[in-house]
Simulated assay, not measured.
Amino acid sequence: MKIAIGADHAGYRLKDVIVPFLEKEGHEVVDMGCHCADSVDYPDYSVPVCDAVVRGEAERGILICGTGIGMSIAANKTAGIRCALVHDLFSAKATREHNDTNVLAMGERVIGPGVAEEIVKIWLDTPFSGGERHIGRINKVKAIEAQAAEAR
């Protein structure tokens, strides 16, 4: 699977753990930065990752900042993105099965590398259930996006 990944200054260390983990698992990774502790703005890294997913240049995206909150907020402003902030294994599985999320957000200051690797593996390996009720809910979210686009 081709995965776009991005982080800000508060998440780049965890990103630097996740990238080789993904490659070891056989995934192709597009690392969109950042690569240092110099203060940067999380939307500058969220947008390119989400754009790559929406355009089909990556099948999924992973975003990491200090808490994951900022990245998830920014990601969900992109039409077509369903980003979940995840810090536990149950949510990693549920967000794929029920919400068909295409972007994962995590917080480096919240979880350690071992848990992050487990979350990523579960999130990537769990298919969408395709359940009728879940499809209906996702379609309602898509309708909200369409209404917002029309209002602009």
Rank of each mutant, 00 (worst) to 15 (best):
M1T: 06
M1R: 11
K2H: 11
I3K: 04
A4E: 09
A7M: 05
D8K: 10
H9G: 04
L14G: 07
I18G: 10
I18Q: 07
P20D: 01
L22Q: 02
L22N: 08
E23L: 00
K24W: 01
E25G: 00
G26F: 05
G26D: 02
H27Y: 08
V29L: 03
M32K: 11
M32H: 04
C36E: 13
A37N: 11
D38K: 14
S39H: 04
S39N: 13
Y42F: 14
D44P: 02
D44Q: 10
Y45W: 02
Y45N: 10
S46D: 07
V47P: 00
C50M: 10
A52Y: 09
A52K: 11
V53L: 03
R55D: 14
R55V: 00
G56Q: 06
G56E: 02
A58N: 08
E59N: 06
G61T: 14
I62A: 09
I62H: 08
L63Y: 03
I64Y: 02
G68A: 13
G68R: 06
G70Y: 08
A75I: 02
N76L: 04
K77E: 12
K77A: 03
C83W: 07
C83I: 01
L85V: 13
V86A: 11
H87D: 14
D88W: 08
F90S: 11
A92D: 14
A92Q: 12
A94H: 12
T95G: 13
T95S: 12
E97I: 01
D100F: 00
V103E: 12
L104Q: 07
L104P: 08
M106W: 01
G107C: 05
V110P: 11
V110C: 01
I111M: 06
I111K: 08
I111S: 13
G112T: 04
G112F: 06
G114T: 07
V115P: 07
V115G: 06
K121V: 03
W123L: 07
T126S: 12
P127I: 14
P127G: 10
S129L: 06
G131K: 11
G131M: 11
E132C: 04
E132S: 12
E132V: 10
R133Q: 15
H134M: 09
H134N: 12
R137M: 14
V141C: 03
K142N: 14
I144Y: 09
I144A: 12
E145N: 02
A146Q: 15
A146M: 12
Q147Y: 12
A149M: 05
A151T: 08
